[in-house]
């Protein structure tokens, strides 16, 4: 028996919004520690990793490990039927071929349940090595979304360059060149408005706008986003899911041919 109840059901709605453009199907791996998902996009350019810890749920029961393969487009359609303040419960029997989503209004006067077929997905899992990144940049998630959206007009790629002076995002194309520089904030009223840079060595990498734009669908999840970079390794773009976990996107860089 698997059952997970989340009073703050809108967190799950937001997680799905942040995955559905990048992934069409994926497996949710459930254990007594929580729920995890790891999947590559169809082109194998990026990898998404989601963690939802058991202690972040209001009720969590998982008698035996199970992997629930789901069509994320369908899951997203179902979660769109939940109101933002609904309590969401996910339920499945052991070795079941379907999963049930229950949405309760806060006053319990409306209860809806939706059943969805599970899929048998033979998904490859990749081992992500522990890495000490050369540069870790934290910035407001909305600011990052705006930068990527603005620079996407210029070309297919964004160059992210981090030095001790700050971080620079650049794009070039037929209409011209765009550069956006962010310095570390000296002082801010609110922590979530801060730009902070921890840098061991300068690093410059080139990434596809298309993927960065899809990652920014997670902007609704968290006030801040963390970018971790090292020379010639994938970029990590991380959004926290409340205090119960995270969505991490790994994006392979564009490299000199």
């Amino acid at each position: 028996m698997f059952e997970a109840r989340l009073v703050q059901g809108n967190l799950l709605k937001k997680v799905l919004e942040s995955l559905k453009d990048l992934l069409t199907e994926a497996s949710w791996d459930c254990a007594d520690t929580g729920i995890q998902l790891q999947a590559m996009d169809n082109s194998h350019v990026s990898l998404v990793s989601v963690q939802l810890r058991a202690d972040g749920f209001d009720k969590f029961r998982c008698d035996r490990q199970l992997s629930m393969g789901m069509n994320l487009t369908s899951m997203s359609k179902i979660l769109r039927c939940a109101a933002n303040d609904d309590i969401i419960t996910i339920k499945a029997q052991d070795q079941a071929d379907n999963v049930t989503f229950v949405f309760e209004s806060p006053n319990q006067e409306k209860v809806a349940d939706y059943e969805m077929k599970l899929m048998n997905l033979d998904q490859e899992h990749l081992g992500i090595p522990e890495t000490d990144y050369a540069a870790v940049i934290k910035l407001p998630a909305a600011e990052f979304q705006r930068i990527i959206k603005d620079l996407s007009q210029f070309g297919e790629s964004v160059v992210i360059s981090c030095t001790k002076e700050g971080v620079k995002f650049s794009a070039a194309g037929d209409i011209g060149v765009g550069n956006i520089k962010l310095a570390q904030t000296a002082s801010v009223d609110k922590e979530e408005e801060a730009v902070t840079i921890e840098m061991q060595e300068p690093v410059t990498l080139t990434f596809a706008c298309r993927y960065l734009n899809m990652f920014t669908k997670a902007t609704c999840l968290a006030p801040q986003v963390t970018l971790s970079m090292s020379p010639e390794v994938p970029l990590v773009v991380e959004y926290k899911i409340g205090d119960m976990g995270h969505v991490r996107y790994y994006l392979a860089p564009k490299i000199e041919d």
């Binding site: 194998h44 350019v45 081992g127 992500i128 090595p129 994938p234 392979a252």
Partner: peptide
């Protein structure tokens, strides 16, 4: 000329 790398060039299959 830059070329898009695959994520599988960096992370090994488990």
């Amino acid at each position: 000329k830059v070329k898009q790398a695959s994520i599988m060039n960096f992370f090994q299959k488990k």
